[in-house]
Amino acid sequence: MTPERLRAFCLDFDAATEEFPFGPEVSVFKVRGKMFALSWLDAKPLRVNLKCDPDDAVRLREEYPAVAPGYHMNKRHWNTVTVGELPERMVRELIEDSYDLVVAGLPRAERLKLDRP
């Protein structure tokens, strides 16, 4: 997955936005003001921080060397994924899981505004 494809995939979710609160080199992808992905899109290798269920986070770290505790994030709830070292389909699923976790934590009124089940 290229940085361009990562950005496009993140922005394809309903109400997803890209912001730069940490400077122009760090893309932060949000839904209704809550972050679901963070990436230095120009970095080599390409990495992305993603929210994750705590039990799944530990399992993924044990199973895949490309998944590490979230860099500069709450290590219980966030993983850093080295994108090129995992199949693209898996990276997409992890991004979607992150988005879904964030949406699930939104107030009901905000969730109802989204085009998601």
Rank of each mutant, 00 (worst) to 15 (best):
T2Q: 03
P3W: 01
P3A: 02
R5F: 01
L6R: 02
L6S: 00
R7F: 09
R7E: 11
A8Y: 05
F9N: 00
C10H: 06
C10D: 08
C10E: 06
L11K: 09
L11H: 10
D12T: 03
F13N: 10
D14V: 12
A15L: 13
A16N: 12
E18I: 13
E18L: 14
F22T: 11
F22Y: 14
G23I: 12
P24D: 15
E25T: 13
V28A: 10
V28N: 10
V28G: 09
K30N: 03
V31N: 09
M35Y: 04
F36P: 03
A37M: 08
L38D: 08
L38N: 05
D42V: 11
D42K: 07
A43W: 03
A43N: 04
K44T: 15
P45N: 03
L46F: 02
V48T: 13
N49H: 04
C52V: 04
D53M: 03
D55G: 07
D55T: 09
V58L: 14
V58R: 12
L60I: 07
R61C: 12
R61D: 11
E62C: 14
E63G: 11
Y64C: 03
Y64M: 00
A66L: 00
V67S: 05
H72R: 05
H72C: 02
M73E: 01
N74M: 00
K75P: 09
R76H: 13
W78G: 04
W78I: 00
N79P: 12
T80R: 03
V81W: 00
T82E: 04
T82N: 01
G84H: 02
G84C: 01
G84A: 07
E85Q: 12
L86D: 05
P87L: 02
P87D: 06
E88W: 11
M90E: 14
M90F: 11
M90W: 08
M90L: 15
R92G: 15
R92S: 15
R92W: 15
E96M: 11
E96G: 13
E96C: 09
E96K: 13
D97W: 13
S98V: 10
S98N: 09
S98G: 11
S98W: 10
D100Q: 10
D100G: 06
L101G: 00
V102D: 04
V103S: 08
A104S: 07
L106G: 07
P107Y: 01
R108L: 10
R108T: 10
A109E: 15
E110V: 00
L112M: 11
K113W: 04
L114E: 05
R116D: 02
R116H: 07
P117I: 02
